[in-house]
Nucleic acid binder design. Structure first.
Lengths: 234, 234
DNA sequence: CAAGAACTTTGATCCACCGCAAACTTGACC
DNA sequence: GGTCAAGTTTGCGGTGGATCAAAGTTCTTG
């Protein structure tokens, strides 16, 4: 296995404030893995043997209901930790993580999390912050699902993806991994049919351009206006 | 101010494993407050100067959208911490907390959280666990809102409240604080009208008994069956 | 390059739930 | 104990979006 260079992780938020020697020590304990597209990094309900850091690619975090429906809880971008069940006092993963494209991840044994948090306070603070941000995110998601119409929810979802993974092209801002109508539906609690109708309507208005597993936001501001636009209840 | 007895908090999950002397030290730094019904313990967006422990009463955690809609994120029961923004690396409260009945709470200065977490590792672990459980809860909420019909969501909400705060009476299990149709609607992303219709329908079937700001679940198992019943999408 | 799989579009229909409106009930307060 | 506010019920109509169905369209693979 090739040696891991500390520059891979030195600039990441959760590793801020660590000395080069500490980073090297942390890296020595990590395994690096390649995950092929559509493979799982870890599985819902599975024993939380490891926690992970996504180095390259995009991962979707999915919860499946007993009756087989899927909900995409969030997408993970390069540099973000995932599967940090141990930082939450859990022994099992609450969701599955599936590679949206070929990925490279680092993996540490789960019990190391506590050790690292004790040894490097800023690492502990970093994960706390990540967890806090995600809790916040999920609360916002609940509010969104509880109060907004489908059109606004889909608009918000696209804007979030654009912000998180957008890549500038000459047509607008492209969501930088393959994403289907079905995926967007599972993020927003609707159906692929409704998503398709919305996208074609928006395309006619010049807000977006989309194709097979591909969405480009042409006019983010106008899409934002639509996302924030007047609600029904209120 | 009256002295606080350590027996008040000795048995709480987040204070497990602390020596009596430690508990006393922690209590010395706490202020105890009475919060009248409908008063706020802390406010959304407000500076997170303190974190709290609910000793007695019930508190609802509410998020308000820019356009004034409210969502009840969760209810806090006696013994639970709240407003633990500092444990999440945040400096501001992400939601408001309002007393559902007259309450007694303990309050500590926010910056003390880190100090306590360092001094008492089991306290740190306890809050991690609490945070983990809440993150989990919120994810489950998103899944619920994204996949279930209104009837199932309301049924689930009632069952959660029954489990959390249910008090056995001769008619069934009573939710132990005043809760209106509007409150239930704000927990489940629907309207008070729909909640009212559901409750009367359930009452006719003998599943619940309800009155003004009062709900008693008569047959939890049958309500549960309804909550878990077949979905539409699938 | 042919054939199939995966993804998307589009139409038609239906119904769960919302929004509005008005009456009713219960508790609080002077 | 009468009045008023707050909470609840109920009817009615409208509609956002799901469901069902069927045809495109674009990739993949031999």
């Amino acid at each position: 296995m090739s040696r891991l260079d500390r520059s891979l992780i030195a600039d990441l938020p959760i590793f801020q404030g660590l000395a080069p020697a500490d980073l090297d020590g942390i890296l020595q304990k990590a395994r690096s893995l390649r995950i092929a597209k559509d493979q799982a990094v870890f599985e819902q309900e599975g024993d939380a043997h490891s926690f992970f850091l996504l180095l390259d690619g995009h991962v979707r975090v999915v919860k499946t209901t007993p009756d087989g429906q899927q909900v995409i809880v969030r997408y993970i971008s390069p540099g973000e930790p995932m599967g940090i069940a141990h930082a939450l006092g859990r022994t099992t993963y609450p969701a599955s993580a599936v590679a949206a494209v070929d990925c490279v991840v680092l993996a540490w044994p789960g019990n190391l999390w506590l050790e690292m948090a004790v040894a490097f306070p800023s690492f502990g603070a970093g994960t706390r912050k990540t967890v806090g941000a995600r809790l916040q995110e999920m609360q916002a998601g609940v509010v969104e699902l509880a109060t907004e119409q489908v059109e606004q929810r889909v608009a918000h979802a696209l804007l979030r993806l654009v912000k998180q993974t957008g890549r500038k092209t000459d047509e607008g801002i492209l969501i930088d991994f393959p994403i289907s109508r079905q995926d967007i539906a599972e993020m927003t609690g609707t159906t692929l049919h409704t998503v398709s109708r919305l996208l074609t309507a928006w395309e006619e208005k010049g807000l977006v351009k989309s194709g097979r597993q591909k969405v480009t936001v042409v006019e983010p501001h106008r899409l934002f206006a639509l996302a924030e636009g007047q609600t029904n209840k209120g």
